[in-house]
Structures are given as C-alpha cells and as structure tokens.
Simulated scan of single mutants.
Amino acid sequence: MIEIRNVSLRLDGKSILNNISLTLEPGKIYGLVGSNGSGKTMLMKCICGFVHPTEGEIKTDGRRVGKDVDYLPNAGIIIETPGFIPYYSGLQNLRLLAGIRRKVTDDQIRKALKITGLDPDSRLWVRKYSLGMRQRLGIAQAIMEQPDILILDEPMNGLDKHGVADIRELLMELKKQGKLILLASHNPADIELLCDEVYEMELGNIRNFS
C-alpha cells in the first residue's frame, strides 16, 4: 500500500503539487491523466523518492519514503525515457542492471524479455532498436525483479497496436497477481481498459475522475 498525505511541492518559488492525498492499494491499476505540465510526472517522482516534497509525506507499509527508506522499495519504475548502454544488447543491459542488487537470475531476466516480446538471444545493439523495442526493454527492466509495485509513466510510448495490446495484457495479468500499478497515459483507451480508479491532474491539483 502507498499512502500519500497532504503532499505539496514547490520549486523555484513555483507551486508544482498542491496538498495531494491518495491511498493506493495492491491488486489495482490506478490511472493518472492530465495535460503536460499538470504534475503527473512530478507526483510519480515524489512517490518513488526521486524528489522530496516540500510538505506532507509518502508512506509504504508504514515507512516514510525519503526518511525511513531512501526510495520506494520493491518497485519497478519507468519515468521518462529509460537509459540503456547503446552498444550492448538488451540482455547485456538487463544483466548489468540486475548485477547492482543481485536479486534475479539470468533465467528471470530472459523470461522478462520474452514476456515483453523481445528475443533474449538477439545480439542487436540497443542503439539499433526502434522506439517501440526500447520501450519494451524498459518494461522488461521494470518487471524483471518481480516487484510488488509498478510506477509507469507513458509505458505505451512508441509501441505499435500489437505492442500496445501485448503490454495491456501483461499489465492485467500483473494486476491479477496482486501488483499495485500506477499508470500515466495520454491514451484514453489505456485508461478506460486498464484502470480501476482514475485521477485527473491540473496545475498540481488532483481529483478523482473515476
């Protein structure tokens, strides 16, 4: 569970988030909608612990993000364009990332690539990937450690219709497994088909749109 309590954020004298309170529970997909600059990405960064709110607090299982824990634990995250080493293959990139925490086996990495529609045996450098392939690799990176929480900012970016269908199916399966998923998307169909609850953001304010 993630509890967001009275979170506000000001940067350079500008109000970015205004007194936001939400409770996010396992086994649900939550949608965030709103125009560019509405605060969606910054809220996600605060939840993950990448940015610390000016006021309020964010807790997961009773622990305060940024205080009791530095970052949101047990979370797979896509915020903005995932960065990979261009002259490594997809498998090599994920192996390198997995080596940081040593939580997953090579078989689990290969499975994550297959689930997202990539060939783990491909030697193609990431620099030669299409935008859609890079996005699939980002999703594979987010799920490879089998996290309980997924924070996904525009995960369908660059995917063709078949890729979108594949990732929607994957997210629904992860929801059935009890994952907590927070999804931001500009595609109304993603929100309508996937989300149990929808929140709209505008100028740093949030309201339930379900």
Rank of each mutant, 00 (worst) to 15 (best):
H162S: 15
A112L: 08
L9C: 09
I151S: 06
G66A: 08
E202H: 00
I139Q: 09
N19F: 03
G34F: 01
T60G: 04
S38N: 08
E145I: 06
G90P: 05
K179V: 03
L194R: 01
D190T: 11
L11T: 00
G204D: 09
N93Q: 04
T41C: 07
G138T: 02
A184Y: 01
L24A: 05
N208Q: 06
L194E: 11
I109H: 04
D106P: 02
Y199I: 06
R95G: 12
I167F: 03
A142W: 09
K14G: 03
G83T: 14
K28N: 13
P188I: 05
Y30W: 08
I2K: 03
M42I: 13
W125M: 11
L137Q: 10
K40W: 04
R10D: 02
G13P: 03
G31T: 02
E202M: 07
V69L: 04
D148V: 05
H186L: 12
G39N: 04
S130Y: 01
C48D: 04
N187I: 12
Q108I: 02
L171M: 10
P155M: 14
S38L: 12
G138K: 04
Q146Y: 12
G76K: 13
M42G: 03
D153R: 09
S8M: 12
S130W: 08
D12V: 02
N187Y: 12
L118V: 08
G117F: 11
T23I: 13
I139H: 11
L113N: 01
L96C: 04
L150Y: 07
V198S: 01
G49W: 12
S8F: 03
G34Q: 03
S122W: 04
I85Y: 14
L11G: 00
C46W: 03
A165P: 00
L203V: 11
G138E: 03
N205Y: 00
I20W: 02
I206N: 13
L24F: 12
M201R: 13
H52E: 09
G49M: 08
R101S: 14
S122I: 08
M1R: 12
I206E: 05
N6W: 00
Y87L: 06
F209A: 03
E80A: 13
C48V: 01
L150A: 10
G132T: 15
